[in-house]
């Protein structure tokens, strides 16, 4: 992904709920985002298309994605900086 696409992903990580903003902020500012592979960036892009309520359930580990790689990315986001 080029610079503009990556900046878009960062902006689209701004969500309707503070909890989600905090998860994404930690992930981006903590440096984990910049280490994502091209495939992970595509997965990240998909995650951002989910409804915020569904994202929150994933991040609070109350739901699990069937796609193993995508679920790994969810765990990475949740565990950022810890």
């Amino acid at each position: 992904m080029d610079y503009v696409e990556i900046e878009k992903l960062k902006w689209r990580s701004r969500r309707s709920m503070l909890e989600l903003d905090l998860y994404f902020e930690r992930f981006i500012l903590g440096g984990s985002f910049s280490k994502l592979t091209e495939q992970e960036l595509i997965d990240y892009q998909y995650l951002l298309t989910l409804d915020d309520g569904d994202l929150l359930l994933l991040f609070q580990e109350k739901e699990v994605l069937a796609n193993v790689e995508m679920q790994k990315l969810v765990i990475k986001i949740v565990n950022a900086n810890f």
Binding site: W11, R14, R15, S16, M17, L18, D52, G53
Partner: peptide
Amino acid sequence: SKVFPTRSHTAA
């Protein structure tokens, strides 16, 4: 809208 409308803070 700065963000996609369904991601506005009303959703919270």
